[in-house]
Simulated scan of single mutants.
Amino acid sequence: MGKAFTLDVVSEEKKVDYVSYFLKDEANYWCESARALEGEEVITWGRFKKIFLDKYFPRYMQTQMELKFFELKQEGMTVGEYEKKFTELDRFVGDYVDTDEKRAKRFQQGLKPWLRSRVAAFVMTTYAEVVQKAMVIEG
């Protein structure tokens, strides 16, 4: 829904209404009870995201995804497969890869040793450069 909000100008007050309209079954029942528990207070978008994530993506799951990211190595994958997995997991570690340079460095660290040493020979600071060079060298 966050992506949809960037396409259409939706006021902060209406975001929770928009999201709750699309929830179904158990998620809809949860939303109704969450709103009732908040009482007369309007649930802000920030508050809604927090209680929604606490319910459907609890801290222990977030921690598991962070660990998967930190343990991620290319090993038996191609650079393309590794890059796809890296991109799936990097959203769970926020600050750790919050700049393009940090992201590039972490990606490079997970490459197979023989590939990492060849990529390291080049001065590259962007994620796209590192991925592209690794793919060229691998190929």
Score class of each variant (00 low, 15 high):
80 G>S: 10
103 R>N: 03
105 K>D: 15
114 W>Q: 06
95 D>P: 07
72 L>W: 14
90 D>Q: 04
8 D>Q: 12
127 Y>N: 00
78 T>W: 12
121 A>G: 13
12 E>F: 10
21 Y>L: 03
116 R>G: 02
7 L>F: 13
49 K>N: 05
10 V>W: 04
116 R>S: 09
118 R>L: 15
14 K>W: 15
4 A>S: 01
99 T>A: 00
21 Y>C: 01
101 E>I: 10
14 K>T: 07
85 K>G: 00
93 V>Q: 00
77 M>A: 15
49 K>R: 13
14 K>D: 14
56 Y>P: 03
37 L>W: 09
87 T>R: 05
86 F>V: 08
96 Y>F: 12
70 F>D: 14
30 W>T: 01
112 K>H: 07
116 R>F: 10
12 E>T: 12
12 E>V: 11
26 E>H: 12
13 E>P: 00
96 Y>C: 04
60 Y>G: 07
77 M>P: 10
69 F>C: 06
52 F>L: 03
42 V>Q: 15
33 S>L: 01
14 K>S: 09
74 Q>P: 10
110 G>C: 09
35 R>A: 12
112 K>L: 04
63 T>F: 13
6 T>V: 15
43 I>A: 06
49 K>G: 06
3 K>L: 01
93 V>E: 02
99 T>V: 07
35 R>V: 04
90 D>M: 04
85 K>E: 06
39 G>S: 00
69 F>P: 03
37 L>H: 12
44 T>K: 04
116 R>N: 12
115 L>M: 02
103 R>P: 01
82 Y>P: 08
75 E>G: 02
55 K>R: 15
93 V>A: 00
50 K>L: 05
8 D>S: 08
40 E>H: 00
55 K>Y: 14
57 F>L: 14
3 K>H: 04
8 D>F: 13
93 V>D: 00
13 E>R: 06
79 V>W: 09
105 K>Q: 15
47 R>D: 05
93 V>M: 03
95 D>C: 03
64 Q>F: 02
74 Q>H: 13
50 K>Y: 09
92 F>Q: 08
68 K>D: 09
41 E>M: 03
66 E>V: 05
77 M>L: 15
38 E>H: 11
11 S>C: 03
83 E>A: 08
96 Y>A: 09
81 E>P: 04
38 E>D: 04
122 F>N: 14
70 F>E: 13
15 K>M: 07
90 D>H: 02
125 T>M: 12
61 M>Y: 13
89 L>F: 05
109 Q>S: 11
42 V>F: 10
40 E>S: 02
74 Q>N: 12
49 K>Q: 12
52 F>D: 01
3 K>G: 01
71 E>S: 11
